[in-house]
Amino acid sequence: MQNWFEHLYDVTGINLSFVYDSYDRGKFLSGIELTLEMAMICIVLSVIIGIVGAWLQNSQFRITNALVRAYVALFRNTPPIVQLFFFFFVLGGVFSFHTHTGVFRLSNFTWAVISLSFYYGSFNIENFRASIEAVPESTVQAAEALGFRQHQIYFNVVLPLALRFSLPGLANNLVSLVKSTSLAYAIAVPEVLYVSSEIWSEQLNVPEMMTVLLFFYVFLVGLLVFALHRLETYLRVPGYSQRA
């Protein structure tokens, strides 16, 4: 197999070094691993931010409500890469402490995760809030008429329906998130784009690595879309979310 790819290089000049060269292969795989790791942590964190934010926004306190609105407006209307630089260079400088073992700093990976989670968290807040509000008033009234208590209505009627309403929007956000993990390249997090750029500067196989990268992302996002689609079908309640 490896010989075949070396042969391919000799004959056609198509240099897929990450297949036959064990050093490049290790590098490329570690990049994929880091991308997946980052994507998964960011997905979990951004969904948590979304849930907490939507809950705060629906609460009675006007201050938390306004704060969450401001956070969403700010993060949605500024570029994620500038946010990333702001987090990494500015806040990264603020959050460095001198300890007896040296200077404590958060790694660039951590900052990338924090920055992306907050950015997509703001999108998730909007999505979750809209889904909660999309639960028909009449459904809530019906539950009240049936003698459900306030928290029972919230947990047994509103949230299960809102979860289902939120899935298409959530899928969009998570797809963007997975794609945006490539931004971490800009602060030298060795994720798949970064290691690919290292490989192509050593091997000078830019077209090959580019194509591989594009297909990797298309495959990864396709997988995520497929999984979310399955979840959507699995959770479907008859009478809701009819598909065109």
């Binding site: 797809v175 794609k179 945006s180 993990t181 490539s182 931004l183 390249y185 784009l193 750029s197 830019v206 077209p207 580019m210 990268l213 594009l214 992302y217 298309v218 996002v221 396709g222 879309v225």
Partner: peptide
């Protein structure tokens, strides 16, 4: 459509830059 929708903008930029 699906191909370009599923690929990150940064990677597309790299692609255009080098290609």
């Amino acid at each position: 459509t699906e191909f370009f929708r599923n690929s990150p903008t940064l990677v597309l930029l790299f692609f255009c830059m080098y290609m």
